[in-house]
Design a protein around this nucleic acid. Sequence first.
DNA 1: TTCCCGGAAT
DNA 2: ATTCCGGGAA
Length: 325
Amino acid sequence: MDENSAKEALVGRVLGWYQKHRRLLPWRGEQDPYRVLLSEVLLQQTRAAQAIPYYHRFLARFPTLEALAQATEEEVLWVWQGCGYYTRARNLHRLARQVSAIPSSYAELRRLPGLGPYTAAAVASIAFGEPVAAVDGNVRRVLARLWAWEQPKGGLVRAKAEELMREALRRAPPGEWNQALIELGALVCTPRRPECKRCPAVQFCQGREAPERYPRPQVRKQQPQEMVALVLQGPAGFHLEKRPGGVLGGLWGVPMEEEPGGLERLLARFGLKQAQKVGEVRHEFTHRRLLVRVYQAPWEGGENPGLRPLSRLDRKVLELAGARL
DNA sequence: TTCCCGGAAT
DNA sequence: ATTCCGGGAA
């Protein structure tokens, strides 16, 4: 079999598999650009299962781009709370205020805040039928295994993805093909323990004998970090403050400081002599492993934390201190 | 518990 | 190159 007929067969097998095995996700088959864009932003760094409830909540609260533009940033974060990567929500809100309609080409989409190469390509292909390859982590992994690339350069992956897209165009719309490749990576060609037995493309796969070698997992250094949180409780609830930019930017939470000296600085800030330790909370970011020692003290003020957008971290801290959320 | 995964902005 | 988050698998 020559190279071209192999490529044709590969594309056909993947498309056939996709038609039979794709999940029935709420945004599948969706053509409305606003909804497609929302789903793709939600799917950045987030599994489909986790994105689903947020997709429904978001659309229930902001059914259109206009409705989103009318909202305040805090209302948007309120719906997004718990989903992580809150810059996505802030960018979505900015985007809604920048444009009156979702632009229809990859080049224009790429200029919107929060849309990088992947998301712009996904929206352009799914909502507008533009034949551009959407390369996410799934596609990168699938292609790396098919051609046994241990450390694939971005340009190489992109070139191969575009080549396959040109072939797929003969058989399916661009958005269908992109989603087929992504779905294969999500369901079968998974990062760990891929199910090659179920793979429609295994006969074309040069990495099938050792799939977990391709692509080589990236090393990341995770620094342990110790923090102190001070939960100030009063008759009306808890003292909360809005976090500035950076970590958990825009969300609300309890006062926190880095160790060492964190507790002393917190006590000084609030004019307190002492606080009572209530326990510890562990929380992980990509690059940091947090250990938060939680202290508690009485306070005059306070508010109901159930009315503010909170991160998982602050939720854990408040629950440890007895808050009901 | 620990380990590991993932797009965009800067 | 580094910074953002949370959840699922091992």
